[in-house]
Design a protein around this nucleic acid. Sequence first.
DNA 1: CATCCCCAGATTGTATGCAATTGATGGGAC
DNA 2: GTCCCATCAATTGCATACAATCTGGGGATG
Lengths: 225, 225
Amino acid sequence: MTQDAGSDVGKAAEVTYLTIRRQILSGERAGGEWLREGDLAAVIGVSRTPVREALRRLAAEGLVRHEPNRGVQVEDWGVDDLDEIFSLRSQLEPWGCGLAAATGLADLVLLDELADRMDAEARRDPPDLDAITELNNRFHRAVLEASGNGRLVGLVSSVVEVPLVWRTFSHYSREAMQRSLAHHHEIVDALRAGDAQWAESVMRSHVRAAWVSLREEHGDSPPGS
Amino acid sequence: MTQDAGSDVGKAAEVTYLTIRRQILSGERAGGEWLREGDLAAVIGVSRTPVREALRRLAAEGLVRHEPNRGVQVEDWGVDDLDEIFSLRSQLEPWGCGLAAATGLADLVLLDELADRMDAEARRDPPDLDAITELNNRFHRAVLEASGNGRLVGLVSSVVEVPLVWRTFSHYSREAMQRSLAHHHEIVDALRAGDAQWAESVMRSHVRAAWVSLREEHGDSPPGS
DNA sequence: CATCCCCAGATTGTATGCAATTGATGGGAC
DNA sequence: GTCCCATCAATTGCATACAATCTGGGGATG
């Protein structure tokens, strides 16, 4: 059965990649689970060739682990991975945000709109956390794209998608969520003012607050570096 | 003709990957050149399947550009890419070096040996720049591995191999080379002292000095951020 | 009873054939 | 002379068949 019967023509590998990726990030495929090429090919409705291509791509991104002649299994992440990722983010994102303030390349209209839409989604009852996550990702990406360093965007993106498995925003307290939303507006203001140090500081607060929120949910000690 | 006839059994894709990668980094494949699956398969002596796999892997690493239904071509880098890369390195490597000083996980004996061997290679006439490059890469990797953040190693590695096309050390003046070698010893001393700020500062000096050396060779203005 | 060996099943790795897409070429209309 | 479109060669994308490798179990052997 083809899961995307609408426009599955011409891009079997792409469809396969997106399908497996979505299943992993949604938690449908548990960490440690083996992904057999044959099974996936049968379920998705393509041959093993595009499946192999999709799996190698996922392996390059770090979502699955490839063991030669054995197969690939879904990477199972722990709190240590979360620490590594947020440690990196709290270094790279503030720096990129400061660069964006210096260059003045940021699309302030877009960022304002994204921040407002996150506010709106958060006011719904219940809030659509997936929608907020999507908007949040676009916000952070837009900020980094304004840094003028294209590789920075790629590096952070490659590292950011892993914590999506944790359903980041679902762990936020009401206060933490409000503060996070306020941070977004403050970031835009700092960028508008062209104040690199302000922008860098707010983004650092923003990322580290998120880090603490996630760690508290897992009953661990506060972050070190 | 099989280029690695010694032990090419069992891993056609790996051999293909290493072969093409080496050709790109050695400059044997010029930037912008199209890499046809059929040609590569015939030259290396394998079928198109492992060639496709190798090319996708290289594309994931950013060494080649993949255009759907058209093929892949060798990425052609410019001075802007060099700026992006060293801008990132001057942010990530000092930070990682400071972390390494704090953790105390660094293998000081290995680092001492690598620094000494770089000195020895530099004293040869003429110096073996490829050997120095290899030792230098191992040195920097060992430092970052001691940071305790595995993803940091991967991120920097993915970004560092591109400038290899430029034959980094061949552009160093005698003074710049001597200073670079001295930096390595100073980094080890800072790590031995467990002084994170010292370690971070030296590594920052080390990276930014390299940046300036490379830019001067290309007749450009000094780096900004 | 523990150990080793070997075989069978399952799974990945590679080769090959065919379909689909792209870009160029050449002829013809205006 | 220029533009447009049909056709074709070249190349990638996908499917399938075959070879190589790994895992687990059963039985002989000490």
